[in-house]
Design a protein around this nucleic acid. Structure first.
Lengths: 194, 194
DNA sequence: CACTGGCTATAACGGCCGTCATAGTCTAGC
DNA sequence: GCTAGACTATGACGGCCGTTATAGCCAGTG
C-alpha cells in the first residue's frame, strides 16, 4: 500500500494549501502545517529545505494543477460545462468549509512581496492564474469566439470567480456565486454564438 | 488648522487600511500601524480600546465609505461612468503602489474567523461589499436594467474588479484590468440598452 | 493657581514565529 | 550483520506578536 495513502510530503503540501486558503500565507505557520499533516516539524525542513517560501510555492502549484486538471476535463464538453465545473469546485470548497476556506492562489497574490524581489510563491500564483485563463480562452476560441474576446472573457471569468468566492466568505452566503454563475454563463453563450 | 491635517486617530485608521491592503489582516501588527502613523503604541489602545479587531473594522469601513463616496458621485453620470471611476480608483492604488497594495476589504474577507463567532471586521467587509453592490444595482435600474439583472450584474462587477486587482498584483501588470474593463463596460451597455 | 482628563511614554507578560542544529531511529541494499 | 541515507525527534536562537499596566506630560477649565 505504497500508493493508497499519500506520502507525508504530499500531506504537508495539501494541508498547507488548505490552511493558506483559510488564513492567508503570513498567518500560516510551518509548525501548524506540520501538526495538521501529522508530520514532525523537522520533516518539513527536510522536505522543503528552502523553508516557507518553497512550501507556499508548492502549495500554490498543487492547487493550480488540481483545478487545471478538473477544468481541462470538463472543458471537453464545452466552455459552459467548464465554467460550471469551475464554479462548482469553488462552491464546494466554500460551502463545505462553512465559508472559512477559499482559494490559496488568491491568498498568496494579495500578500506584499519583500522589497527586493518577487518571491517564488507569488510568481507561481501568476502562472496558475495565467494557466486557468489560457485553458478557458482556448476553449472559447474552439467554440467560435474571437481570440481577443476570448482572452478578455477568460480573464473576467477567473477574476470574477475568485472575487465571488471572497465575497461569499464575507457574507457567509453562496448567493454571490449564483449571481456570478448566471451572468458568466450568459456571457459565454453570447460570445460563442457567432 | 484643526482640520487641515488629519487627526492622529484618522492617520492610524488610514494607515491601517493601507497596510492591511498590502499584507493582509493577520500580518498587519498594531505596533507597525502605530509606527507608520507616527503615533505611539499606547495611543492606539487609547483610541481603539477593543484592540486589533476594532482597528480593522474601522479600517474596512473607512475604505468602504471612501470608495462609496467616489462611486456615488460618478454614478450620477450613469453606470458606465461609475464603472470607469471604480476601475480607475483601484488601478491607481495598484499601479501607484507598484502592485503591492490592493483592497483591504478583500484582504479581511479571506481571513478565517475564529471558531466561535463572526468578527466585526468580517461583518463590516460584508456590509461594504453589499453597499457597493447596491449603489451599482440602483444605478443600473435607473438606466433601464431589469432589477434582477441589475443585482446580478452588480455582484459580478464588484467581484470581478476585486478579483482582477488581485490578479494584477500576482502578474505585476495592469493588463487584467484592461480586459475586465472592456468586458464589464459592454455588459453594462447591453443591460441598459433595453 | 490647582487639577482633571486626554494623550504619551515605557516596560513588561506570555506566546508563537522561522529557522537551524544535533542526535536518534528506521530501512534498503550489500 | 552492517552501513548509508532517508526521516524523525527535540530543543534552542533571537525576534515580533497582542495586550496590559503604570507612570508621566500637558492642555484647558475653574
Amino acid at each position: 500500500m505504497t500508493e493508497s495513502s499519500p506520502t507525508a510530503r504530499e500531506r504537508i503540501v495539501a494541508g498547507a494549501a488548505d490552511m493558506i486558503s483559510r488564513r492567508g500565507l503570513n498567518a500560516t505557520s510551518i509548525r501548524e502545517t506540520a501538526k495538521h499533516a501529522r508530520a514532525p516539524l523537522g520533516s518539513t525542513y527536510h522536505y522543503f529545505p528552502d523553508g516557507k517560501q518553497q512550501l507556499a510555492t508548492e502549495a500554490v502549484r498543487y492547487t493550480g494543477e488540481w483545478v487545471a486538471r478538473s477544468l481541462r476535463k470538463e472543458l471537453e464538453a464545452g466552455p459552459v460545462a467548464g465554467l460550471q465545473a469551475f464554479l462548482a469546485l469553488w462552491r464546494g470548497i466554500v460551502v463545505d468549509s462553512d465559508f472559512r476556506a477559499g482559494c490559496p492562489v488568491l491568498a498568496v497574490s494579495i500578500e506584499e512581496p519583500p522589497t527586493d524581489e518577487t518571491p517564488t510563491a507569488l510568481a507561481a500564483a501568476a502562472e496558475v492564474f495565467a494557466k486557468w485563463e489560457s485553458l478557458l480562452a482556448d476553449s472559447l476560441c474552439e467554440h467560435g469566439a474571437e481570440p481577443q474576446q476570448a482572452a478578455q472573457l477568460a480573464t473576467l471569468i477567473v477574476a470574477a470567480v475568485e472575487g465571488t468566492v471572497a465575497m461569499c466568505r464575507a457574507q457567509r452566503s453562496a448567493q454571490p456565486l449564483d449571481h456570478t454563475a448566471e451572468q458568466l454563463q450568459a456571457l459565454i453563450l453570447a460570445a460563442t454564438k457567432t
